[in-house]
Design a protein around this nucleic acid. Structure first.
Lengths: 288, 288
DNA sequence: CTGCTTGACGAACAGTGTTTGTTAAGCGTG
DNA sequence: CACGCTTAACAAACACTGTTCGTCAAGCAG
């Protein structure tokens, strides 16, 4: 085994992993995840596609690295930011904002990407804050799961760019034994471009006799401030977490060094509120 | 315009949309969504790939039709099933189970599929139940959003089959100026196959000094009963919805025919509980 | 200098979604 | 019947895709 890593290699070009990642991120921002091909990345770097396989095993690994790079700049709120809940809402909001800043990169996280270095760093902090909030270990674990789903889904939702080259077609009939088309066949003068606009058009043109509730909610289903919507959903999740009764006070075999009682604000050893969610009235999410 | 649809066409073959959908679903179940190509579907039908474009505009439309078909058999719980919340939990659980039954088909819904006929039917029922629970229109709309994220993410999570042909590689280092690898480089004797197993291995082999909380939670993060986990998360969401203060009692311009007060159980016009989430103690989710 | 590792890269392989043009079958009507 | 006409089927091709293989040059160790 000669060495773990090469010291210095100032050859003629030496594009490097960072350049590959930067070029990929640029392409993701411009074209979206699916349209990013190794050939396009290589072309942006003025090389061939085979050159990328020195730094990256797969296309999946490349996208996973880009995903992790997208959240690399997220800073964890310090103790001065408030109590555990305020800090958690701030942290999650920052993650969502960082992901939404890079087109549909969040779709990588929803599917097949293991957490990278920064993803683990942020997950660790989320788990720490949830534990500081008094949640038992089971609730913490499942809350991590739920928050991850929320983060990726909401970041993908808040993406303004189109998800693919051409707008996806709406499925109209199913088994073929039906004459009416439920979804709007595009007879509108202006064909909406973005996915959200197409979804909005679908809801607005629904037949009111069969879908009375959706028709009544149509203006609200897709519209509104996206940040406010994201903050509201996060508030719902945390309120729901606090409403769960604690099973047992984290009775596990190991006891790894008392999870940092946050010197500025001493965390209560037992949650003060689990049935009545306390002053839940107007805690702002403060997304980004 | 001659006719809306051809009456009868018993020619020599006439494969039909239903056959195309059935073949596609079979392939999705076997190979996963990404591995389903139009050529493979055509091969299963003993025809060429161009023949599919008679019934389907895109590959995306085909997958969206398959997604809608996957939830076609979900029956809406009737009034005898219980109150609105029990019915909602039952309905959502059935949708998740129906989706998880077909490999990673839920990934289509997470990305770029407009709701089809049955998706709309089930969404309408969810919205109706939420309204019956006393949520105002804004909360209803955003809850639909949140529940949709939950449904697709959880269904994808509960899929037992691998997400792709070869297991995705874990990103190890980021900017290259680092020598330690955080994620486990596979030196284990048995390389885990499924995505969940790989994730579990990642958490278990984390350095305990930098990730104390994740290491402590590692046994719980991925394990446990998936149905119980899904039911818990759904309970969290609904409890969180009930914890939100109502803004205004649905004061909108239109008033579309009083949203079905559910004759068996008269729905309360005003929610009886929004700060104290009522007897939240042991309401079972009863998934599937 | 010789070995040898590392990175770059042309070329190719086995696929992919989609379009185009063509062919044949069934239908309504003259 | 034959005539258009619509529709489904399909071969072939186009422009790609991810990935692998073999080769080649550059730099360092001995």
């Amino acid at each position: 085994m000669p060495q773990a890593r090469s010291r210095s290699r100032p050859s003629k070009s030496m594009l490097g992993l960072d350049a590959v990642l930067a070029a990929t991120i640029t392409l993701v921002d411009e074209l979206g995840c699916e349209a990013v091909s190794l050939r396009r990345v290589a072309q942006a770097l003025e090389t061939g596609p085979a050159s990328l396989y020195v730094y990256v095993r797969d296309r999946q690994e490349l996208m996973a690295l880009v995903l992790d790079h997208a959240v690399a700049d997220v800073v964890v709120p310090d103790e001065g930011a408030g109590d555990w809940r305020t800090r958690l809402e701030l942290l999650v909001g920052r993650i969502v904002a960082a992901l939404a800043r890079h087109n549909d990169i969040a779709s990588v996280g929803l599917r097949d990407a293991l957490p990278g270095r920064h993803g683990l760093r942020l997950t660790e902090e989320m788990a720490r804050l949830l534990r500081a909030g008094g949640l038992d270990d089971d609730a913490c674990s499942w809350a991590i799961d739920l928050l991850g789903q929320y983060i990726y889904s909401t970041a993908l939702e808040n993406t303004g760019a189109p998800h693919s080259r051409r707008p996806p077609a709406a499925p109209s009939s199913d088994t073929g034994a039906d004459t009416t088309t439920d979804t709007a066949t595009d007879t509108d003068p202006t064909v909406p471009e973005t996915f959200t606009a197409r979804l909005d058009a679908t809801f607005r043109t629904l037949p009111a006799d069969r879908y009375p509730t959706l028709r009544a909610l149509a203006p609200r289903l897709t519209g509104g401030d996206q940040d406010a919507r994201a903050a509201w959903k996060l508030r719902v999740i945390i309120d729901g977490l606090l409403a769960q009764p604690p099973r047992r006070p984290t009775s596990d075999g190991n006891d790894p060094a008392a999870p940092d009682p946050a010197p500025g604000a001493p965390s209560p050893p037992d949650r003060e509120t689990h049935v009545t969610p306390a002053p839940v009235t107007s805690r702002r999410g403060a997304l980004s």
